[in-house]
């Protein structure tokens, strides 16, 4: 490179370091708190709304978004359970957002989305549709109710 100013060199080095830091943080944070949704091919089984108990502290929820509600609309689980959410839509694109747990998925027709999350504290966790899905979009909310104490 001809005629590079010394301060230009400094700024390039700084950029390199910052970039490394970003990339390191992204890779480091993977799998720790919450990862990208899992990619699973379509399967019709997941389009039937369902809550199933796998064992004492593991649940499976097939959440189905429809204009303009989620099914199931109330999900009761014990404190401390780990839940696998399988999310899909029967019509337009919907969102599936549990802000307190950083669960943030799109519900898409003909596609299955999946994430796993553990509910350590008792409480009511709102599931909000955060993608525009037609005239009733602003009323589309469901709940995860974490109340039953875990019996050991």
């Amino acid at each position: 490179m001809p005629e590079m100013d010394p301060s230009e060199k400094k700024v390039l080095v700084t950029t390199g370091i910052v970039l490394m830091l970003f990339i390191f943080s992204v890779l480091y944070a993977r799998n720790r708190n919450n990862d990208l949704p899992e990619c699973i091919p379509y399967n019709k089984t997941y389009t039937e709304p369902k809550i199933s108990k796998i064992d004492d502290s593991t649940y499976q929820v097939f959440a189905v978004a429809k204009m303009w509600q989620f099914e199931p609309s109330k999900i009761y689980i014990p404190v401390g359970s780990e839940v696998d959410f399988y999310v899909t839509s029967m019509d337009v694109v919907h969102g599936f957002n549990i802000p307190e747990k950083n669960v943030n998925l799109m519900a898409v027709y003909g596609n299955i989305n999946k994430t796993t999350v553990k509910f350590e504290k008792a409480g009511v966790y709102k599931i909000t549709c955060h993608e525009y899905c037609g005239i009733g979009h602003q009323s589309m909310q469901a709940e995860v109710i974490v109340n039953i104490p875990l019996n050991k």
Binding site: V11, L12, T14, T15, V18, L19, F22, I23, V26, R30, D35, L36, P37, E38, C39, I40, P41, Y42, V87, T88, G95, N104, L105, M106, V108, N111, I112, N113, K114
Partner: peptide, 26 residues
């Protein structure tokens, strides 16, 4: 947040996105 697209490709394009920091810092 979309379904049906693998984690690997999301991660790859995510890292590539940070490439834009170079022209931005310049």
């Amino acid at each position: 947040s979309d379904p049906s697209i693998s984690q690997g490709i999301k991660l790859f394009q995510g890292l590539l996105t940070y490439g834009v920091t170079i022209p931005s810092f310049i």
